[in-house]
């Protein structure tokens, strides 16, 4: 007797590559990270024994960890404020389609194509001790090895790298606001500022929320700019959790400690995305 509906293997074959890769290169390493934080490992990351909370308590008792966590928050906040307000300003400036619009739009969005490594290299050649800026001004300022200045230079470069991407999203959001509504507002006598605050910003709230939170996450994940500009220094003042993961795992060979930090990194990002989700459900206006 023949079965009525035969089991069809075809769709499973179609998704097989994606599923295998996700299990091997995403879920697998994720669980390995969690387990490695409570075990001892050898140089290849093989488990050699149970460590319990050895590395966790080492991390939480380490004053340096709390300083680095504070650095991460400070860095995320500074980046988020800088990127968000710059991108917002540029996007609002270019909403109206004008004759020369293509020119300045292109300039505003251009840094999106420049790699973060290349941006860092360019800025470094200006700001390093024997760099162009010092030679130009005839000064000898240690922009990148001074505790007060280096944090802000790294922030400026990171913000510079992220403005363009956010600008593109925001502009798309503002352009999506229907022209009828804007014209009605103009007829009612609303000036540019009022239109921006009362119409454009509420109507483009999905994009605005997205950009707001994506910039916090991007700042938490920043690695390249820190590595190339300051190397986390001076005195760890520009080291964030992400950068410390690298230092511990690669430079100091403390893979287990790096795994604890990675989980902290995951929790931070997870919390930000949860808050984003809650805010979106509460405040975002969808047409």
């Amino acid at each position: 007797m023949k079965k009525k509906s035969k089991f069809d293997v075809f769709p499973y074959l179609l998704i097989l590559p994606v599923v295998i890769s996700s299990v091997v290169f995403n879920f697998g390493p994720f669980f390995k990270t969690i387990i490695s934080s409570v075990t001892f490992t050898d140089i290849y990351g093989n488990w050699t024994g149970f460590a319990g909370d050895t590395f966790w308590s080492m991390m939480f008792k380490n004053d340096e960890f709390w300083m680095i966590l504070w650095n991460t928050m400070k860095f995320a906040l500074a980046n988020f404020i800088g990127t968000f307000f710059m991108a917002m300003l540029l996007a609002l400036l270019s909403v109206k389609r004008t004759k020369l619009g293509k020119v300045y739009q292109m300039l505003y969005a251009l840094p999106v194509a420049i790699a973060s490594a290349i941006s860092s290299v360019i800025w470094k050649s200006f700001f390093s001790q024997n760099g162009i800026l010092n030679s130009w001004l005839g000064t000898n300022t240690s922009w990148l090895v001074d505790v007060d200045k280096s944090f802000w230079i790294v922030t400026i470069v990171t913000v510079w790298c992220h403005i363009a991407g956010s600008y593109i999203y925001l502009l798309a959001g503002f352009r999506g606001v229907s022209e009828d509504i804007q014209e009605a507002a103009i007829v009612d006598g609303a000036n540019g500022f009022v239109r921006a605050v009362k119409i454009m910003i509420p109507m483009a709230s999905p994009q605005i929320f997205f950009v707001l939170f994506v910039n916090i996450v991007n700042a938490i994940k920043t690695f390249t700019q820190i590595k190339l500009l300051t190397g986390g220094g001076p005195a760890k003042s520009t080291t964030t959790i992400m950068y410390d993961v690298y230092v511990r795992a690669i430079e100091l060979g403390e893979f287990e400690y790096a795994c604890c930090l990675s989980i902290v990194l995951f929790v931070l990002i997870f919390l930000v995305t949860r808050i984003q989700f809650i805010f979106e459900n509460k405040f975002v206006h969808y047409e």
């Binding site: 599923v19 697998g28 390493p29 990270t33 994940k221 795992a249 795994c259 990675s262």
Partner: peptide, 24 residues
């Protein structure tokens, strides 16, 4: 849903485990 969960795990979080794997 399982595949969409992958998007919840940022690459930066697992990068060191991946590195150890490639090394092994």
């Amino acid at each position: 849903t399982l595949l969409m969960t992958v998007m919840m795990i940022p690459g930066e979080v697992i990068i060191m485990s991946l590195y150890k794997m490639i090394m092994k």
